[in-house]
Amino acid sequence: MKKFGLFLLGGIAAVILLANLGSMIGLAIGLVILYFAVKGFMKAETTSKKVIWAIIGIFAACAAISNVPALLGIAAAYVLYVVYKKWNGKKQDPGKDNDPFVNFEKQWAEMNRN
């Protein structure tokens, strides 16, 4: 039953991810353009160049803001990742401790016995 729930959750997340794929691409493009506009604005020495970079930055920010539904797609991608991890998750033995300090103490005790 747990696998069925994970399968159902993963299916819903996949549909949401595919539905928001276009807006995710638009958000990424808008943020990249905004990044380069800010860098260009900071490097510009004349006022006219700063104004041009500011206008480009404003348009890029508007494009990025208009693609806010892409955040649902990003959340769906994270849910798919969690479902994948839980689907293939391996249970650790409670008696087997992978703590490096515990292993260090065991090795130190072995060295002192010899």
Rank of each mutant, 00 (worst) to 15 (best):
I16Q: 01
F101R: 09
G40M: 11
G10H: 05
L8E: 10
G5L: 11
G5N: 06
W108Q: 09
S48F: 09
Y78D: 14
W108H: 12
S23M: 03
G73K: 05
N103L: 14
A77T: 06
I65T: 01
G30P: 07
K3S: 08
P94E: 14
F59R: 02
G22T: 07
D99H: 03
Q92T: 11
I29C: 10
A61M: 03
I56Y: 08
N114D: 00
K50D: 06
I56G: 08
I58E: 04
K49N: 09
I33E: 14
T47Y: 15
G89D: 10
L17W: 14
N98I: 02
K3N: 08
N103P: 01
I74P: 11
A54E: 08
A14G: 09
G11S: 05
A75T: 13
A44R: 06
L72Y: 10
K106Y: 04
A54N: 02
D93I: 03
G26T: 09
A77I: 04
V102H: 08
A54D: 09
S66C: 01
N112P: 02
L71P: 00
V68P: 03
T46A: 12
F104I: 03
L34F: 05
Y35W: 14
R113A: 00
A77Q: 05
N88S: 13
V79K: 03
R113E: 00
K106N: 10
I29G: 08
F59H: 02
S23Q: 07
G73P: 05
A54I: 05
F7H: 12
G95L: 14
L9Q: 10
K3Y: 12
A54Q: 03
S66H: 00
V15M: 06
K85S: 03
F36C: 01
K90L: 12
E105Y: 07
M1Y: 15
F59N: 04
A28E: 15
L71K: 04
L17K: 12
G95V: 14
G22F: 10
P94R: 08
K3M: 12
E110H: 01
V79G: 07
Q107D: 07
A61C: 01
L17N: 07
F41L: 15
N88A: 13
I52P: 05
E105N: 09
G40S: 10
A70K: 00
K86H: 09
Q92I: 06
I55F: 15
K39N: 11
D99I: 05
V82T: 09
I33V: 12
A19H: 11
